[in-house]
Write a protein that binds this DNA or RNA. Structure first.
Lengths: 221, 221
DNA sequence: AATTTTATGTTAACATTGTTCACATAAAAC
DNA sequence: GTTTTATGTGAACAATGTTAACATAAAATT
């Protein structure tokens, strides 16, 4: 033993990093403590110096996951320079993209298995910075300015979220073979979603850029 | 040993029955072979005479689950005596009720974990008797009769299914505390769903019975 | 600077899990 | 009545998460 690395230095972060690398490709259920110990070159029980259990490690991952998710989904909603519908579009698109790009993380965050952990995590930051709160605020903004129908904003928020969650889930859980179809489905879903929320008098046609390219315009009415 | 029950007679059915009793209360993940052997009074390896693995038992449960689900959701759609919108309403309501009454079965059928098993199961009966096919047929019926907009019926079917799946999932996965709220959410979601599908000229007000009682009328436009 | 305390690692052992194998016996086929 | 098949048992496996006793590096205290 030439090199002395009895003390690792940042084992906790390494465990988390390796765990996230793992669920980039495989489901969290298949993550085992042995995988973590092998990848860090430590013993199988080393992890218990940093997490009280496997579940606590996953709890930490969920917190980090929600931070990333919110940072991906919320900013477009808050960009008051742009028209409101564009902001909804970009955020909704980001929502679906997050789910498609990180299906295992998405399921970790929104699935049933870790519901209790999620509740504990969400209740802390429910007020301002969560994606749900951002969406609700944007809806209320639209209601005040007359673009959106005046109705219960909480219910409308859940319904929009529900649409996004439903479509995202069906897509990442393998209910549709064709990946191309997901774009078409998204455009249709978004149109439905906005049609249900918007005041009757509004007409809306817009070129809405997202990510690298320019997407086809979303027409409503 | 007075009674000789070395040969059980219907152990396979008993295993399935006990497994379904179990997921009536707890998640399928917590079902263990020991639970099954203890409940039947057999040894831990007895199950391997009837199922090649634990997964095959679950596969059988999924098949049975889809049969029950389809039998719960499809009949209202096929009842051509009633107005089409009423049939949609009843079926959609049944969908949500199934999920609420059998959350663990619902997740077993529509979750990601057993996606591969589900694909194998669904492909057999995709054509006629599945809930998805019934919904698609009802949509096409409505398009022919002029009640529904003429658009891609496959996409519309997925979008409706997506709405149902999204709301059902959010409700049973604990994203909303209040159970009462789910009724209000359902009514709103259904109104949105139908509004997006229906031709503009239609006006629709109906008293729609479901289950034991009479639900409040669904107004569209 | 020496000593004590704390943080972080190791190894060995546990019960539980799904699964397999050799064996036993009831039921069915011949 | 004998053979074959179906269905059960018990012992053993490796893998899992977890704990306990022990070891040592780093930090804190004197």
């Amino acid at each position: 033993m030439i090199k002395n690395d009895y003390h690792h230095g940042n084992l906790k972060d390494d465990f988390l990093k390796i765990a996230f690398d793992f669920i980039a490709k495989e489901d969290i259920e298949k993550l085992t403590l042995k995988i973590l110990s092998d990848a860090t070159g430590t013993s199988r029980s080393a992890i218990y110096r940093h997490f009280s259990s496997k579940e606590e490690l996953i709890e930490t991952m969920i917190q980090k996951g929600f931070d990333d998710f919110d940072a991906f989904v919320s900013p477009p909603l808050k960009d008051k320079e742009k028209p409101l519908i564009d902001r909804f579009y970009q955020s909704a698109k980001a929502y679906l993209e997050f789910a498609k790009q990180n299906p295992n993380i998405y399921r970790l965050l929104f699935g049933n298995k870790y519901a209790k952990i999620r509740e504990a995590t969400l209740s802390i930051k429910d007020d301002d910075c969560s994606g749900f709160a951002s969406l609700k605020q944007a809806i209320e903004e639209g209601q005040k300015s007359g673009i959106l129908k005046k109705e219960d904003s909480f219910i409308r928020t859940i319904l929009i979220w529900s649409s996004l969650h439903g479509l995202s889930s069906l897509i990442i859980d393998g209910f549709m073979d064709i990946d191309k179809l997901s774009d078409e489905l998204f455009e249709n879903m978004f149109t439905d979603m906005i049609s249900a929320s918007v005041t009757n008098k509004i007409k809306f046609i817009s070129n809405i850029p997202f990510g690298d390219g320019i997407l086809k315009p979303t027409k409503i009415f």
